[in-house]
Nucleic acid binder design. Structure first.
Length: 438
RNA sequence: GUGGCUAUGGUGUAAUGGUUAACACAGAGGUUUGUGGUACCUCUGAUGAGGGUUCAAUUCCCUCUAGCCACCCCA
């Protein structure tokens, strides 16, 4: 009874299979290899430059980003993943990490540590934008931050670190740099800039007319042809820096000269986040296909950010490149090959009894530090050898009925196709010896 | 958020208003129940979703979704 109610039939209507969320991406195969290469490079450079890792949560209070990034920025106004949780908290998925780093610095009293506090991170960031080449709604960044010190040598160190790291991945970059002043000189400059634009207001695009009121610096890097023309002759930040900012900038450039790091002064470089002061910079690809299209990363000094968050003054500088854009270039330029670690030994049993022994051999070799592979669910020797050669294993261990009887293992050299019989009990030592010889 | 182009097996492509949607690669199995990159054979597997026009739609039309590209912005 009740038999008719038991049904394993699929629904008549075809339900669309689950799909990636828009702008999200699975990272696997070649992309995953690139990601690992980048992570490795980041870890090495962090160690060499004395940065320690910090992981901050993906979710933060919504207000953190409003205060840090700026409530007039596109990032906050249009692009944040924000929601109210079950407890009524206003929450946002981080669109960038610097705000979280400064929050952590203040919250954990890192100002009592030796300064500067040097931290690095890597992880996903979220911005609700229309996906495009090299742009996703979840994207990965790594970043380096040095907090608690205002010396210009730190700006130079940061730029050096980014340049060398990208170079180690085979990427030649063009460094653009500018200084946008601080609380002493920026208001005055903004005033001058505003009055310049106001005289040309009629020729500015609609967006820029709005920007003029809220954030006039952004008019400088508008791409509308008419705005570009006007911005070209606009008063430049570097001509209106106060003495302190000018000195700072000059010193940064001197350090870069000393390091022989090439840079382009770009008076229109202002960056999209409000918290920057003094030095700002961006890394661009030097490949003409991507030049002016994709920034690999950017950074700058943010001496007032901690105050924006209600803490004491913590001068700081940082930078953050994006994984996906680096991967995009690595795939296109093919200037860099990740190292492939082929297995050293492939274990091939024939039959059930041999499979049991092979499992032990496999575990023994693994424990001895040998890179070992297998495909125990396959039966034929042909297909197992095929697998071994596809994986580019150096040796294959063949264990069949005969070997079980003799208590031995057959060692096959995959390059020369020569085979030797080795005592089962000595196999780990024998393999290690063979690997040393090669 | 705005505009343009696109959507066929896992991947890359082909074809058609009308019988069974073709090919290559990848995958699985075999030729060879104990010897590997070749060769040959077999198999698995697709028209993004919904609606409309039509005797008939994978093909034509609309909507949605997604992707790419451009704008905006940025990593």
């Amino acid at each position: 009874m009740a038999k008719k109610n038991i049904s394993l039939k699929l629904p008549k209507k075809k339900i669309p299979p689950p799909q990636l969320l828009r702008g999200m991406k699975d990272i696997y195969d070649q992309d995953q290899i690139w990601f690992q290469e980048i992570r490795k490079a980041v870890a090495v450079f962090a160690r060499d430059f004395g940065f320690s890792r910090i992981d901050t949560p993906i979710l933060e209070q919504h207000s953190l980003f409003v205060r840090a990034v700026g409530d007039q920025t596109d990032v906050v106004q249009k692009e944040m993943y924000a929601f109210v949780d079950q407890g009524g908290e206003h929450i946002a998925a981080r669109p960038e990490a610097t705000a979280s780093i400064v929050r952590a610095y203040l919250e954990h009293g890192m100002l009592s540590k030796p300064q500067p506090v040097k931290l690095y991170y890597e992880g996903p960031m979220f911005r609700h934008e229309r996906p495009q080449l090299g742009r996703y709604r979840q994207f990965f960044q790594f970043g380096f931050e040095a907090l608690g010190d205002q010396h210009p040598v730190l700006d130079a160190e940061m730029i050096l670190l980014g340049e060398r790291l990208l170079a180690s991945l085979g990427l030649k970059v063009v460094l653009q740099i500018n200084s946008i002043g601080d609380e002493n000189c920026r208001p005055q400059y903004t005033h001058i800039l505003k009055s310049y634009f106001r005289t040309n207001k009629a020729r500015l695009c609609a967006d820029c007319q709005k920007r003029l009121l809220k954030n006039p610096l952004r008019v400088l890097d508008c791409k509308e042809p008419s705005c570009v023309g006007i911005a070209k002759d606009a008063p430049q930040t570097i001509d209106h820096l106060c003495t302190a900012c000018k000195d700072h900038f000059v010193q940064v450039l001197e350090y870069l000269d000393e390091l022989q790091i090439a840079y382009e002064l770009n008076p229109r470089l202002v960056r999209g986040l409000d918290y920057y002061t003094k030095t700002v910079f961006e890394y661009w690809s030097d490949d003409e296909r991507f030049r002016d299209k994709l920034a690999l990363g950017g950074g700058g000094r943010y001496d007032r950010l901690a105050e924006l968050l209600g803490g004491r003054t913590v001068p700081a500088v940082g930078m953050a490149p994006g994984f996906e854009r680096i991967v995009l270039l690595l795939n296109e330029l093919k200037t860099y090959e990740p190292k492939v670690y082929a297995p050293q030994v492939f274990v091939a049993p024939l039959g059930d009894q041999a499979r049991k022994r092979a499992l032990k051999v496999y575990d023994g070799l693994r424990a001895a530090g040998v890179r070992v592979a297998q495909n125990f669910s396959k039966d034929g020797l042909s297909s197992q050898l095929g697998m071994a050669s596809k994986l580019q294993a150096r040796f294959t261990l063949i264990i069949g009925q005969q070997e079980i009887l003799d208590d031995t293992v057959m060692v096959r050299d995959m390059e020369t196709s020569s085979q030797e019989v080795v005592d089962y009990g000595k196999i780990v030592g024998d393999i290690k010896k063979r690997l040393r010889k090669k």
